[in-house]
Design a protein around this nucleic acid. Sequence first.
DNA 1: AATGATATACGAAAAGTTTCGTAAATGCAA
DNA 2: TTGCATTTACGAAACTTTTCGTATATCATT
Lengths: 130, 130
Amino acid sequence: MSKKSNLPQPTDAELEILQILWEAGPSTVRFINEKLNEQQEKEIGYTTTLKLMQIMTEKKLLSRNTESRTHVYLAEAVQGDTQKALLKKFVNAAFQGSATSLVMQALGNHQTSQEELDEIKALIEKIEKG
Amino acid sequence: MSKKSNLPQPTDAELEILQILWEAGPSTVRFINEKLNEQQEKEIGYTTTLKLMQIMTEKKLLSRNTESRTHVYLAEAVQGDTQKALLKKFVNAAFQGSATSLVMQALGNHQTSQEELDEIKALIEKIEKG
DNA sequence: AATGATATACGAAAAGTTTCGTAAATGCAA
DNA sequence: TTGCATTTACGAAACTTTTCGTATATCATT
């Protein structure tokens, strides 16, 4: 039984921040801002990142520890739940709700390693067993 | 060898229109607008749809036949190519580029019929054969 | 030809998202 | 303690996307 949190879906810029927090764990604005600037060529200002993270905190996508002057932010949105929600929306928008055709497209285009194929086959078997 | 068209990616609202055109073939603004309003509870104005389709035509996502007073619009963006491009962006944004974890999530969440599973298995085999 | 219904054209408002400038607070080091 | 660097707060500009109001044209019916 998982509790239903019903957070708003993150925007594109917000999702980038979540990705970093999911991977790195609790972080400061400075750290996130630097990571973002590593990933992109376009320099993004410090206060821009700050503002985004403040908005995200207001939306409950993040929480923060304000004990020290430098606040430490934590992802409240759970990665799996967020991906699931985004995927659902995406399947509907781009594949008219057909998860299967999305899967076919995903497998068809990207080169997938044998290991990954095995993972997927294992999952399919598990589903088939019910 | 497929020709590279390099169209801009459609916005959400534009994608909805493309979906209808892909399914129904060449259509008028009136028809698209009615379809959109069937799908959604929120009523969308006729001129709103018209404007969108005019913009899309400018962007070359659509083309139109203006011979008769009532223009007939045609999707220029190819469904498969568009889906492929959108998928690539989505995998990067939401799954950090891992098509496999997207596939796992998609298969895990949505209930997939045996037929569909068979389709996917067949594709995997085909990939494995190289 | 006049009327009414329906079409396109187009600008601009409205809404949503991203970006930043500036001010004020805090901590650190000379 | 004075001054410099760094931080948060916050409003608003800048952009993007969506929506619509209004003008004008066209067609069918009378």
